[in-house]
Nucleic acid binder design. Structure first.
Length: 606
DNA sequence: GATGTCTGCCCC
DNA sequence: ATTCTGC
DNA sequence: GCAGAATGGGCAGACATC
């Protein structure tokens, strides 16, 4: 647009073309206004072609972040501080803006409107550039310690004060981590291919992205070294690979059909996905989102050193909390207590031992195995690992009929697993990051349509929706009923499983029951945006019952200070209009469901 | 020092 | 994690 | 079928506040 091409060639060393933030914001606005991916790719690729020196910063802001995941750099500010900033910017109270957010569901647009309605007062407005915005965000990420929140707020405010309305919209969205323009990593991958090559290069760029999950860097390299320079990237121990994920199917027979009659079947352990890198004497561990989690698992690190009979390796597995005395797997909640821990690490390691179940090998001794079929990778894995108390190989076998798959599945449940993973053993069964082509398929008991897994819960409250749920409810607050005490106690919120149409109807359906404040029979530690007389009953499906620090259902009964909650709740689509509120699932039934589950929390945690 | 709130492209 | 939706 | 964006429970850490 306003690039001064002639200049740049003459003064290439001293003149830097810079992308104005307004230009970026206007492109983001255009992207947001379409639902067509091809149009998005067009817009982004032409932006990338113009970005020049700013390409890395541009891509970071497009993703709404300042660093790749594995670097562990975080802003440490989000919605609440954005609300404070907007309050300060407009002179309105924070509570007023919070109310607006419940109604309108988009803090970015609220900020934009505030600025549009504001009288033009500030005259000396410094034009924002992509570099300036990126630099400020990076500064925010580096602040810590007492008073840092105030200083972060100040930097954000400084940006907002120099911003045009549309810039405010995206500044707020970047900071709150909700870009909502319909663009995520795969669209950027395509855009890089189109910008510096052709659409046909998308797969190649994706391959590069898989082993260097850093899009700004890839965009920079494609721009400066040519798109084909990306092919020279190599799988390297120490640099995390994007994780391969699984699709889902509702039955084992569907899986058998999809897999053409024969597949490998593995236990699906309920723990933390863990990518292991052995680099000579050093070991690094990464989470599914490629965060470095090495320091939380010194026990695993030590054992890997002994168990992996290779100089260098990249392996995939699941770290599971384990009771070594009884040889039983513990609930997922237990390993959560080790993730991210910095303090009392020693005690926690002793209290919550972890077993790592390995199931794949992406590199061994410098040999890239990602394009090798599953069976070969698996063989390499078993040949390289010497099992120990803490390092094991995931249980697996090959099946070709539903009956033996079913037996293996039941065996997995008996062992305390969530279900099974089905893995393709065809030639095409490479290690393909992301969840595509149904090379891996997961299957859990809860996927079956069984009454046992569902409960009938009463709507007692609701929350204002955000983004595409703006203006309506985003989720409901659900409760069980206690007949003895005539109380409704919360077990979960519910925001998944609704079609757009059902969501649209909710406010109308709940209007007759609307209250100004909480019904006196409802016990909740959660403050809903809207309250109702308990009446409407919905069927809800969940994976299991967990101990809860927040929900009031069965509080203090199973464990002092804890209630019970539903893990992975979703609406089944069934309105139980045949049931009245007092016919909803009761607390006793939830307790029975909890006790009928196999796994229990360690007694000494009480 | 204890408690409460917020944040995490968190984990699931 | 689950689920829905536009392409 | 893919890609993206809504939404869930719950954990530890960091900071603010009492």
């Amino acid at each position: 647009m306003k690039r001064k091409v002639d200049w740049r060639y003459l003064l290439v060393d001293i003149v830097f073309v810079c992308v104005r933030f307004l230009e970026l914001a206007e492109i983001l606005d255009k992207i947001e206004s379409t639902t067509k991916r091809l149009e998005m790719v067009d817009l982004i690729s032409s932006l990338l072609k113009r970005a020049e020196d700013d390409i890395r910063e541009t891509v970071f802001l497009l993703q709404g972040k300042v660093a790749p995941d594995y670097e562990g750099i975080e802003l440490g500010i989000a919605e609440k501080i954005a609300i404070r900033a907007l309050a300060s910017l407009s002179g309105l109270k924070e509570a007023t803006i919070e109310t607006e957010l419940v109604k309108k569901g988009d803090l970015g647009k609220i900020g934009e409107e505030l600025l549009r309605n504001k009288k033009q007062s500030s005259l000396l407005s410094e034009e924002l550039t992509v570099k300036k915005v990126y630099g400020s965000l990076l500064k925010i990420s580096k602040l810590s310690g007492g008073g840092s929140q105030t200083r972060k707020l100040q930097i954000l405010l400084d940006l907002l004060q120099n911003a045009e309305p549309v810039e405010v919209r995206y500044l707020i969205r970047i900071v709150t981590g909700k870009m909502r323009i319909g663009v995520a990593d795969m669209t950027i991958v395509d855009s890089i291919a189109v910008a510096f090559g052709t659409k046909e290069k998308s797969d190649m760029v994706e391959g590069a992205y898989n082993i260097m999950p850093n899009l700004p860097e890839l965009a920079y390299r494609a721009m400066s070294g040519g798109i084909d320079s990306l092919t020279s990237l190599k799988v390297t121990a120490g640099i995390p690979i994007r994780s391969m994920l699984a699709e889902r199917l509702p039955s084992l027979s569907d899986i058998l059909e999809k897999m053409d009659g024969r597949f490998a079947i593995e236990y699906k352990y309920d723990g933390l996905r863990t990518q292991v890198h052995k680099i000579g004497n050093k070991v690094e561990l990464f989470s599914r989102r490629l965060e470095n989690i090495t320091s939380q698992f010194p026990d695993i690190v030590e054992e890997i050193g002994k168990s992996v009979k290779a100089q260098n390796a990249i392996l995939d597995g699941e770290a599971v909390p384990f009771n070594l005395d009884t040889n039983e797997m513990l609930p997922f909640q237990e390993i959560s207590r080790r993730r991210g821990r910095k303090y009392d690490l020693k005690e926690t390691i002793e209290k919550i031992p972890v077993v790592l179940f390995l199931f794949d090998a992406m590199m061994i001794n410098g040999t890239n195995l990602m394009d090798v079929p599953y069976a070969q990778r698996r063989l390499k894995l078993t040949n390289t690992i010497e099992e120990s108390q803490n390092i094991k190989i995931a249980k697996s076998r090959v099946v070709s009929d539903v009956e033996s798959a079913e037996r293996f599945f039941n065996e997995a449940l008996e062992a305390g697993c969530e279900g099974i993973m089905a893995k393709s053993i065809e030639d095409k069964s490479i290690y393909k990051p992301g969840a595509r082509e149904f090379l891996w398929i997961k299957y859990k008991r809860e996927y079956q349509l069984e009454m046992e897994d569902t409960v009938d819960l009463v709507v007692v409250g609701a929350f204002g929706g955000q983004g595409k749920r703006s203006g309506g409810y985003g989720a409901l607050l659900m409760a069980v009923y206690s007949r003895e005490e005539d109380k409704f106690r919360t077990v979960c919120k519910l925001g998944s499983g609704f079609s757009d149409e059902q969501l649209d109807n909710l406010p109308r359906m709940l209007k007759p029951y609307s209250l100004k404040s909480r019904d006196h029979r409802v016990e909740s530690t959660i403050d809903a945006d809207f309250w109702f007389t308990p009446s409407l009953v919905l069927e809800v499906k969940g994976a299991e019952i967990t101990l809860s620090p927040t929900h009031t259902c069965c509080r203090d009964i199973v464990k002092k200070g804890a209630g019970l909650a539903i893990r992975f709740p979703r609406f089944t689509g069934k309105w139980r209009t045949d049931k009245k509120a007092d016919e909803a699932t009761n607390e006793q039934e939830i307790i029975e469901m909890y006790h009928s589950q196999r796994k229990k929390v360690l007694a000494d945690n009480a």
